[in-house]
Amino acid sequence: MISKKIVIKIPTGLEARPVALLVQVASQYESNVYVECEEKKVNAKSIMGMMSLGLPAGEEINVIVDGSDEEVAMENIEKYLCGNK
């Protein structure tokens, strides 16, 4: 299991379209992917869960990835959240 603090650099924050794209990125991997913000922890493969966080640009989140492809998954999720699709 690995975790990393990441600042969201997508200009619009995580609203509908960016959340859908993040869910697509996370869903490519076998690993479990979670996003923590304050006291909330949600499955990054769940559109409804991610939408419930309402994360603005500049927000710092903790991404937790656990599984066989966790390194690659974390790398690509971080690239997406930092605006380096």
Rank of each mutant, 00 (worst) to 15 (best):
Y80K: 00
L53T: 03
V25C: 03
K79W: 01
K5Q: 11
P18S: 09
E36G: 11
V33H: 02
C37P: 07
A73G: 02
N43D: 15
E59M: 11
I10V: 10
A16P: 05
Q24Y: 05
C37R: 14
P56F: 02
S68C: 02
L14K: 11
I8S: 02
I2K: 15
V25K: 10
E71T: 03
M50Q: 07
N32W: 08
I8M: 03
Y29P: 04
E71R: 04
V72N: 13
V63Q: 00
G49E: 09
M1T: 03
A20F: 11
L14I: 02
V42F: 02
M1G: 14
N76I: 00
S27K: 03
P56I: 03
E38I: 04
S31L: 08
M74F: 01
D69V: 01
E15G: 07
E39A: 13
K40D: 11
S52H: 13
D66F: 06
S52T: 09
M1L: 04
V25M: 03
S46H: 10
L53G: 10
E15A: 12
L21M: 11
N76A: 01
N43Y: 11
N76P: 05
S68N: 05
V65D: 00
C37T: 15
Y80L: 04
A26W: 08
K45D: 13
Y29H: 06
S3R: 13
E71D: 12
Y80E: 02
Q28E: 15
I64K: 13
G67V: 07
P56A: 08
G83E: 13
C82W: 08
E30M: 08
P11N: 04
M50V: 14
S31M: 13
K5F: 07
S3L: 10
L22G: 07
G67C: 06
E30N: 10
C82I: 12
L14F: 08
R17V: 10
R17Q: 12
E78V: 00
E30W: 09
N32E: 14
E78R: 00
E36N: 12
S31D: 07
L22R: 06
E38V: 03
S52F: 05
K9M: 11
I47C: 04
C82T: 11
M74S: 01
N76C: 00
C37M: 12
Y80P: 01
M51P: 08
Y29D: 06
E36Y: 05
E36P: 07
A20K: 15
E70N: 00
L14H: 06
E30F: 06
G58M: 05
A16I: 07
S46G: 11
D66E: 14
G67T: 11
A20L: 15
I10N: 02
N76S: 03
I61Y: 01
A20V: 14
V42E: 10
K41R: 15
G83A: 02
L21D: 13
V72I: 14
V25L: 05
N62R: 15
V63M: 04
A20W: 06
G54A: 14
V7E: 13
A20Y: 09
V19L: 09
V42M: 04
